[in-house]
């Protein structure tokens, strides 16, 4: 499983980094800090199961992410919203995130969801290995 992370540089983005680092090896994480860079990445084939962790810096940044919605249809998204405004929340749900939280929290919920996803993925791989071995 690979985590593709989008987080423009802010104080909160360091907080996310600190939560993620202990959980996964460096080879499992790809970091992008601009819409252009992540767009280019999403236009390349995914060789493994991918989870996107997106932490836009503002409502405008979130809207820019929504403009590349067609590139993230087949990947699961954990979305960290920059604020709790109704409009931001509505745009956030348009990305159909599998988990949604807010940048002003301590982000331990993001870590817990990542652990659950990785556990599920291992379990699925084991099942597939057993059934189709």
């Amino acid at each position: 499983m690979v985590f593709i992370i989008y987080k423009p540089s802010t104080n909160n983005s360091n907080k996310l980094q600190r939560k993620i680092e202990p959980l996964v090896s460096k080879t499992q994480v790809e970091n992008y800090s601009s819409i252009k860079d992540i767009t280019q990445r999403l236009q390349r084939p995914m060789k493994e199961e991918v989870v996107g962790i997106f932490m836009p810096s503002s409502e405008k940044d979130l809207s820019d992410l929504l403009s590349i919605n067609h590139l993230v249809k087949d990947i699961r998204i954990i979305l960290v919203l920059p604020d709790r405004d109704e409009k931001t929340i509505s745009i956030g749900h348009s990305l159909r995130p599998r988990f949604l939280t807010y940048a002003d929290g301590d982000l331990s919920d993001v870590a817990a969801v990542m652990i659950k996803m990785m556990g599920n993925s291992r379990e699925e791989q084991n099942q597939r290995g057993e059934v189709y071995a």
Binding site: H93, R96, P97, R98, F99, A112, V113, K116, M117, N120
Partner: peptide, 19 residues
Amino acid sequence: RRFVVVDCAVLPESLVEST
């Protein structure tokens, strides 16, 4: 209106109710 996804498979038990 909104289409809100709750993925029960990725929510740890401790987060289900507050989420």
